[in-house]
Structures are given as C-alpha cells and as structure tokens.
C-alpha cells in the first residue's frame, strides 16, 4: 500500500509517495539519499539512526515513515549551515569524540536536543542523554568531554 506523505526535512518540505511499511530510516536513506543517518541494528537498540523529530531525538528505524507525516525531521545533514559547522560538530572533532564516526551523527543530534532543553547539563545528565546511543570506539570518555566543553 502506498501513501503520500509530507515531511519537513532539514527545513525543506518534501512530498513523497512511499510504501506504508517503510521506516523513516529507509525513507531518509533510500528515498531522500540522506545517508548520514546510519543503520546499526534496525531495531531500536543502538541510536545510529537517531534523527530529531520535532526537535526530539528518536530512533528512526523504529518509526514508520507514515507516522512522521507532516512533521519536522532534522538529520545530521541539516546541522552545518552555509558551509559553517555547528559548534557541536566542531567540539566533537576537536575533543576526539569521533573515531570511526558511525555513531557520530546520532550522538551529535542527541547532544543538540539535550543542549536545547538543558544548556547546563551535569555529567550525569549528559550520560543519561546519550544512554540510547552506543559507541564501540571511544568508550564515551571523549564524547562526554566534547559535550561538557559546550557547557558554559
């Protein structure tokens, strides 16, 4: 069964006809070519597929695309504006928070939402915020440091 949906992806309106059984992750990667959103497990257990749905981080592999109809979706491609990196991206790179980089899009988006809701998180709150995102490379230390460096 097909359905027409409207997504606001990184500020741009996209009207698409999709199969109802497609996940948001599949629509982003396959129909829109936004491969910055990664698939690590495809069942809600790793956070590689994190996008912001109306500003909130969600696992896009665990969400039917039809359920995002009419909503705003931010992917990693939407962060750097006009060739200008987002400060979070900058901090992640400087602090060594990126190794293989496969978890990084998700981590960075979660950080964005965290800092918007709570510009002054404690280390414990930072750890809680990224507790759905698995990183095998960094042992999280430099990721936590990178986020802390963004706290005034």
């Amino acid at each position: 069964m097909k359905k027409k949906i409207r997504l606001i992806v990184n500020g741009e309106e996209k009207v698409l006809t999709i199969d109802v059984q497609q996940t948001l992750l599949e629509v982003l990667r396959e129909d829109l070519g936004l491969t910055g959103t990664k698939k690590g497990c495809n069942q809600g257990e790793c956070g590689a597929c994190t996008v912001l749905l109306e500003g909130k981080p969600v696992s896009s592999c665990s969400l039917l695309a039809v359920k995002a109809d009419g909503k705003a979706v931010t992917t990693i491609e939407g962060l750097a504006k006009g060739g200008q990196l987002h400060p979070i991206q900058q901090a992640f790179n400087e602090k060594g928070a990126i190794q293989c980089g496969f978890c990084s899009p998700g981590m960075i988006l979660v950080t964005k939402s965290l800092l918007e809701q709570n510009p002054n998180p404690t280390t414990a709150e930072i750890k809680e915020a990224i507790a759905g995102n698995i990183c095998r490379c960094t042992g999280y230390v430099q990721i936590i440091e990178a986020i802390r460096s963004l706290v005034p």
Partner: peptide, 23 residues
C-alpha cells in the same frame, strides 16, 4: 600534538561514505 582528526569533519557532517552507503 593534539591535531584534530583529518577525516573528522566528513564524519561529523554525515558526508563520509561507508560501504553501507554505497549505491
């Protein structure tokens, strides 16, 4: 020196192409 990763920005912006991204 603590030189930032030369491939870090490609990864931070989602531009880095992994095998799973090849189409």
């Amino acid at each position: 020196k603590r030189i930032p990763r030369v491939d870090g920005l490609a990864k931070a912006t989602g531009k880095a192409t992994y095998t799973v991204d090849v189409k």
